[in-house]
């Protein structure tokens, strides 16, 4: 059982479905985890979203028509679950985009599993204050190095719009870093 088509074939057979699904989890768990983690910026939230994502995948696997690749489909579900999670949090605790950014920065600062230095914290804060779409595009391009064509399938946005989003995101991140780097204490 090596490629995605084999996994899908085994998922359709009730006698091998559970085993195949376990294999699918083990194959994609880390990539999906890090994708979600960069959106929610917190391990505990990521853990919840990742579980929900795999439950959605399990429930929807029979309706997967293979019009896109399995990887694209999984990423799309993970992205949508992450956005839904943040929107739910926004409805419960927040009221505006600024508050959502503050929530993400708070998440980042309270996350005990952040090992970066001050520069990396500054970069993550710059990413946190980006609008949602730009933040997702920036993370997928900058950290995960996903091609625009694949990103287009996952996010349902044209390649041109994605390039524009990434361009604007990079400019905003650089501006934020430049205006805040003097506060970093060099030792």
């Amino acid at each position: 059982m090596t490629n995605d088509q084999q996994i899908l074939d085994n998922l359709k057979d009730p006698s091998t479905k559970e085993l195949a699904f376990r294999y699918l989890i083990s194959k994609y768990k880390e990539r999906l985890y890090w994708h979600i983690r960069k959106i929610t910026m917190n391990h505990d939230d990521t853990d919840d979203v990742l579980q929900n994502t795999f439950i959605k995948i399990w429930n929807g696997i029979d309706s997967f028509r293979a019009e896109s690749s399995l990887f694209t489909w999984l990423y799309r579900i993970a992205t949508n679950e992450s956005i839904t999670f943040l929107n739910q949090r926004k409805r419960k605790m927040m009221s505006s985009l600024t508050d959502e950014n503050e929530y993400l920065i708070g998440n980042l600062q309270s996350d005990t599993y952040f090992d970066g230095d001050e520069w990396q914290m500054l970069l993550q804060k710059a990413i946190a204050i980006l609008p949602e779409k730009q933040r997702i595009v920036f993370n997928m391009k900058y950290f995960d190095e996903i091609k625009y064509e694949e990103m287009s399938e996952i996010l349902g946005t044209s390649v041109g719009a994605l390039k524009a989003s990434y361009h604007h995101a990079v400019k905003k991140v650089e501006e934020y870093v430049k205006s805040n780097e003097t506060r970093i204490d060099f030792q």
Binding site: R37, K38, H43, G116, W119, F143, V170, E174
Partner: peptide, 12 residues
């Protein structure tokens, strides 16, 4: 700056 800090600062 972006080229220099392209590492994942998070852990599990």
């Amino acid at each position: 700056f972006l080229k220099r800090h392209k590492t994942n600062p998070f852990r599990t």
